[in-house]
């Protein structure tokens, strides 16, 4: 068990677009019918499913992250959170943080999220987005 939390393993991988999209959709309670849209959302993040750049596959790791893909990752979380606003069950910041980022974010981020939650108490989608947009959520 400790090995999972070792420095070598814990948040040592960048989520691939497929992982990021799947986890985001699960977090926003989206249904499975939007799967083609979900696949399409991965393309601007640098991954077209079943269409790797060459036979070696996707290089992964830091190659998922550039200025364009990072903005796309964050904007996708925003759009997904907005879309699911109506169907979402209310969750506290503590619950969101626990499920999505292992209740382990930097103190600055924790303070920032708490401040957002306090200032926008009626905005469940906004809060969910803020958690999904953290650097911590970009990693596995």
């Amino acid at each position: 068990m400790d090995a999972f939390y070792s420095d070598q393993a814990y948040r040592a991988l960048v989520k691939s677009p497929a992982e990021l999209v799947a986890q985001t959709l699960k977090a926003t309670g989206a249904n499975a019918r939007g799967y083609t849209a979900a696949a399409a959302a991965m393309a601007p993040m640098g991954q077209v499913l079943f269409y790797p750049p060459n036979v070696a596959g996707w290089p992964g790791g830091s190659s998922w992250i550039n200025s364009s893909t990072l903005l796309n990752r964050i904007n996708f979380a925003n759009a997904a959170a907005q879309r699911s606003q109506a169907s979402m069950t209310a969750q506290t910041l503590a619950q969101l943080s626990d499920t999505l980022v292992d209740a382990n974010v930097s103190p600055t981020t924790r303070d920032g999220l708490e401040a957002f939650a306090a200032a926008h108490s009626a905005d469940q989608a906004g809060l969910l987005f803020m958690v999904l947009a953290t650097p911590e959520f970009q990693l596995n």
Binding site: Y10, R11, A12, I65, S106, T108, P135, E136, Q138
Partner: peptide
């Protein structure tokens, strides 16, 4: 958030 994470985690990213 991103500025703080730079120094926080053990992650190389």
């Amino acid at each position: 958030f991103y500025g703080a994470f730079k120094g926080a985690g053990p992650a190389p990213f």
